[in-house]
């Protein structure tokens, strides 16, 4: 099966729990990647602030970043860009790898949360 590579923007960490407010997009995406791995897809994830070498080493990514840093996150499947500038939904990930989502409802970040 193909491999998914995720190139995150510079972050303290990719969990989403660091910062004055939990970033539900990151929390949801971490859960989605975890789900994808359980479906047998190999996933690699790189954070610009912690693994810059991976950004330099990949010519597709380094070319994109050179043009505009805001293009991150970039997702690659077999060195081809499948998503840029945002984190995809689980259904999109499922489509990419032709996985039939078992249809657990409401798994994704559908409700935009407002601050307290």
């Amino acid at each position: 099966m193909s491999k998914l590579k995720v190139y995150d923007p510079a972050m303290c960490c990719s969990t989403g729990v660091c910062g004055p407010q939990v970033d539900m997009t990151l929390v949801g995406f971490a859960a989605d990647l975890d789900w994808l791995k359980r479906q047998g897809v190999e996933v690699e994830r790189y954070n610009l602030s912690q693994q810059p070498a991976a950004f330099v080493a990949n010519s597709v990514v380094s070319e994109e970043v050179r043009r505009d840093i805001n293009v991150l996150p970039i997702l690659l499947v077999d060195d081809e860009i499948v998503c840029r500038g945002r984190y995809p939904l689980r259904t999109e990930l499922a489509d990419l790898f032709s996985i039939k989502d078992e249809g657990r409802p409401g798994l994704l970040r559908v409700i935009p949360q407002t601050g307290d």
């Binding site: 969990t15 660091c18 949801g28 859960a31 789900w35």
Partner: peptide
Amino acid sequence: ASSGRIDEHGLALLEEDLRSPCT
């Protein structure tokens, strides 16, 4: 805030991340 928005695997993952010293 997260329950209902992510599945139980995601929740377990989140619980683990919340054990980080930064929390």
